[in-house]
Every structure is written in C-alpha cells, then in structure tokens.
Nucleic acid binder design. Structure first.
Lengths: 336, 336
DNA sequence: CTGTTAGCGCCTTCAG
DNA sequence: CTGAAGGCGCTAACAG
C-alpha cells in the first residue's frame, strides 16, 4: 500500500546498510560474492520496501532490455493469434516481454515499427514480413527471425510450415480418394512465400497424376462473393460427373469457399470435396467437418523465439530454416 | 548501413554544433523556441547520423515510456484477439506501444505480470482480470482500465458488453419466435461477471414469460462431451413436442454445444433452436448459420485505450463504466 | 533563443 | 567480499 515514491536501489542499499553495488549484485544473482549476512539484509530490505528493479534503467545500462518484438503483417487472422500464443509462452518462460505490432498490411507502417524497435532497444525481432518489402531491412542491425516468409535481401533465421510436404499431403489424400479434378483456390499470390510454394507444389505434383486434372485460380479478394461464386460455379459445372475437390490455400480461403458453396447450394462432402490449409477451430464443425492440413502454430511461434534467443545470446552460426511438417486432419468433406 | 555505434543525442548535438538541450527540444517538438537555422542543422544531423532517440532514456527521465500493457486472463480465445486488435489500433494512432501478457488462467502468473509492469514503467494497464483475484490489485498505483469484469476491491474504469441488454435481446428474440423451453448453458460461472450477469438476467427475464420455461445449466468443463452430451440429451428428450432452444453463454460454449448436438444427431434450426453470445467468424457457416449476439469487440478495445489515455493524462474524474450494446444477428438456427 | 549543469536508476570498473 | 565513483542517453531546471 505504498503511496510513497517507488523505491530505488539506493533506498534498498540505505535500509540494508550496504552499498548499491551489493544490491545490484544481489539482483543479478551473483550470490557467490556476497556474504550470507548481506544477502539476508538486502532480501529483507527489498521486501519491506516492496522494491522492484527498473528494467528501463538496467536495460539502458547493459543494453539488455529483455524486450522482444513480434511484428505481424496482419494481426486480424487467427493464424497470427496462434503464433503469438506460442511466442508469448516462450517469452514468459524465459523472462522476456513481448511488444506486439501490427503492420496492418501497410508497408509504411511496417517501416515505422522497425524504427520504433530501435527506440525501445528491443533485443530482437520476430517478424512476419509484408511480402518482399520496399524499404531496407538489411541496415537493421538486430537479431531477427522471420516466420512464414523469407525476407528478400536480408538473411535471417526462418521458420514456417513445410509447404511442400504439406501440399503433398493434401494432394496425396485427394488422389487416394480418387478425385479427378481439383481446383486450387488462393488469394492473390503476390510474392507471399507460402502461397507461392503451395500453389507451385500443387502444380508440379498434379503433373504426376494424369488421372487427375489440377487447376489454379488466383482471386484478388477472396471474401468477395462476386469474385468467387462464379468461379466455383463454373468449376462445379465443368465437372460432368467427375469427382471434384477444392483445395483452399489457407484458413480464410477455406472459410470463404465454404460460404460460397453454401450460397451456390453445393454441399461439400457430398457434391464436392473440400480441403484447406490451416486448421481453424471451426473446421471440425462446418458441415460434417472439413479436412485440413494443420500447422503446428504454437510450435512455430515457440521455435521462432528459441532461434531468436540463441541469436541474442550471441549465436553467429549460419542462418537456419526450420520447417515444421503439416498434419492431415481427415474429415468428412473429402470422403464423398 | 551504419555499422558504427548507434548515434546518441550528443552525437547529433556535436555534428549540428548545438547543445544537447536544443536537440532535445527539437525532438520534443518545441519548435517555437528554436531558430530556423538551428532546426535545420539539427534536422540534417539527425538524418545523416540516422539518429533514433532512445525511449528508454527519455522514459526514464520523464517517466513517460509510451508503453501500455494489455493483460489477458486467457489469450487463447478469439475474443481476446479481437479486443487486442482494437487496443493495438488505438495504440498505433496515439504513438503508444503495446506490451501483451497472458495470465494463462493462473493467478500466480497474473501476479507476476503486474510486478513486471512496474519494472517497465508502463504508463497504464488494460486488464481482463482473472475472476476476483486473490492478490492485491489495490496497492497498484497505475492507471488501469478493466475489460469484461470489474475487479473486486479495486475501482477502475470498466468497459464491456451491456450484458443485460444483450441478454434481453436474446430472450426477446426467442420469445418472439415462440420458443417454449430454453436451456441456458454456461461454463462454470465462478465470479466471472459476464457469466453472472447473463445468467441472472436470463433467469429474471424468464419470470415474465410464463409461456416459456427457462433453465440454467452450469457445466464445469464445457469442452468435455461426457459432461455436456447427457445434459443436452436430457433436455431434448424433456421437450415433448415443445419448441426448444439453447442459449450459450459465449463463443466457446456455442461451439461445444454445436459439436455436442452433432454427436447427438440433433439438428439446430430444425430440431432445436440455438443462439449464442459472441459472434465468431464461423457462426455464419455452422449448419445454416447460428444466431448470435455480437459484441463490438474492436470498439471495446479501442474504448478501453481511450479511457486509459485520459487517466494517463491526468483525468481524475469518477470511474466510468462504458457499456456497449450487443447486436442480434439472426440466422437460421433460431428460425425453426 | 541557447547551453550548462544535474541527475533519472542502474551497472561496471576499480580500488579497498 | 565490499563500496565509491562514473556514466548509459536523455531531460529539466537554471542561467546566460
């Protein structure tokens, strides 16, 4: 219930009748160089004063703020949230604190954020970059690890889903279930690595299965019915009794595809197959469940932090790319 | 591409051939007290040195770190995410930076977090407290606004859904649609305010409608089928031709209720009515859509920040509670 | 208008 | 083992 000013290290020192240095040492766990007696007195003083060391001050002095930043291209997708949970968990376990930023899909914003980071002397950054950026990442002298996408012209550790393996999983599943015509539907690919890899892998894999025809459609705004409905309709009508499926590039695409199918009165799991990347919590309950390829998002976030921590601690080894395998979650939507 | 040490205010001052004070003033926008000439020189120096002021240092000096904290009881629910987006947006617009914490439903953790906050000298806190806490919030001398739940023994500004109005919305809708038996299903209420208010309001409202029988069921772990399935089954069987509906206390409850109904082969929108608080993105696509009461989550987050900012800026007025009205989103699940 | 002087709270020599 | 002195980068008086 201290209404008094916040206690400082000097207050503690005074009360414990020791030098500030000893208190500082105590705070930093250098117990071997402190007599039992002094430790006890300091401990007591700290408790009675309810003293909390200022990380600002110590951070300024040592340059170690115990702050890391997490920068998202778009915070509004549930995927970002899941990643964040992983990072947050790792932070908590390692006594780091998380600054969260949302570039909001604006390059200008992303740039500003990066500036801010140096202002706060964060020790490192985990970033899901906005495509291949236009501003310079490379004059950015901070430990950094990327998630999802490599940053052009700026080598970093990188962690993301093994898109090739994951796509293979999806395609194999479709082939095994005797689908004869598959539409890969994706948002504007731009230079977003996951979308590129998934669509390319899809394209290449389909070559090896003559019994099944693959097709890729890139939609500008996947949430616009007028853009997506006719495409799906046309695809469906082109089926002519063939067994058809749709593969959606991510959670958003899956949801919007499902919505469109509803509007068109095409039922997945009966009229058509549906499978999507990401495994949002609603996937199990849409219709009789939608088959998905799940990403280990928590692990990805956690791993990103671990890589970052190593860099912060001085790891100078070659940049790593950590790929996490996807997991196929089979549900009714692909069992026609 | 500066590989050289980070520039400091002194470097700028030296290069611009002015005093540090002038640079400081420049940085703080006190242009009226600076000659054009000096301003120009400073500007130039800052640019050539790529100087970025350290918020740590200035924060330490002025006590204004431009940092605020957002503390969640549970970061894993999508509701938290949406709130966060609102807060983040407000932060961005006001040049504040967001520290995000997850108490992870552990009181111990929440306590630690609060400690940390003072370490970083955050200027304020937005908190979704863990129930009525066991540790002391009130010796916590920081601007603070709560979301969702009031904090027992610690008055703060508070912003959340108008649960009374929202519940009324739901009940009225059900009555208007001639339901005769309604089950309110909720997770363990404990002392979580939203759950209390919703269930109590439900209970009271039902008194005024003799034509409709209300019932409240509190489930310990709503995601456990063995806990929820038999309850729903029993309720359904007790119907005897009456028009029945289920009202779920939040998004999680809605989802789990839907899952259970699926398992029990009871179809919402046909066999039974279903309506839930919160409006998660999947609500529109579960079955033919689930009727919901939507919370303006973005606004709630945004508003929380605004209230906090006022407090930070010295507002000492009486504590406010801001209630946001819910919005009824009618879908097929309540149109039998 | 401008610069000098003290610190903010802490950590790091460097002598005891 | 311990403490005094100096300084991290910045700002707030106080002089000029």
């Amino acid at each position: 219930m201290t209404l008094t000013k916040k206690a400082t290290i000097s207050d503690v020192a005074k009360l414990a009748k020791v030098g500030k240095t000893s208190v500082s040492r105590y705070l930093n766990g250098e117990f071997k160089v402190l007599s039992e007696d002094i430790q006890r007195r300091i401990k007591l003083a700290i408790e009675t004063l309810d003293y909390k060391p200022s990380r600002l001050a110590s951070g300024m002095k040592k340059g170690r703020t115990k702050l890391i930043a997490l920068v998202f291209a778009d915070l509004s997708i549930s995927y970002a949230m899941e990643i964040m949970r992983g990072v947050e968990t790792a932070c908590r376990e390692n006594d780091y604190t998380l600054l969260v930023f949302n570039a909001n899909n604006e390059s200008e914003q992303e740039k500003k954020i990066l500036q801010l980071l140096t202002s706060y002397q964060v020790e490192g950054v985990i970033i899901q970059a906005l495509r291949t950026h236009d501003h310079n990442f490379y004059d950015f002298n901070l430990p950094m690890v990327s998630i999802d996408r490599a940053i052009h012209g700026c080598e970093t550790d990188l962690v993301h889903l093994d898109n090739i393996q994951a796509t293979k999983l999806a395609v194999t599943h479709l082939i095994e279930n005797a689908f004869e015509q598959v539409l890969f539907i994706t948002e504007k690919i731009e230079d977003i690595q996951a979308r590129q890899q998934r669509s390319e892998t899809f394209y290449q894999l389909m070559q090896s299965y003559p019994q099944c025809k693959g097709e890729i459609i890139e939609v500008l705004d996947i949430s616009q019915p007028q853009q997506i409905d006719p495409i799906l309709q046309a695809f469906y009508q082109s089926g002519q009794g063939k067994k058809q499926a749709i593969l959606a590039v991510n959670g958003v695409a899956t949801l919007n595809t499902a919505l469109a199918l509803k509007r068109l009165n095409i039922e997945w799991g009966r009229d058509i197959g549906l499978i999507g990347f990401d495994d949002p919590n609603w996937a199990a309950v849409l219709g009789d469940g939608i088959t998905t390829i799940r990403q280990p998002t928590l692990d990805i976030g956690y791993c990103a932090f671990e890589l970052l921590l190593k860099r912060i601690q001085g790891d100078r080894s070659k940049f790593k790319t950590v790929l996490y395998p996807g997991e196929l979650i089979v549900r009714k939507s692909t069992i026609l």
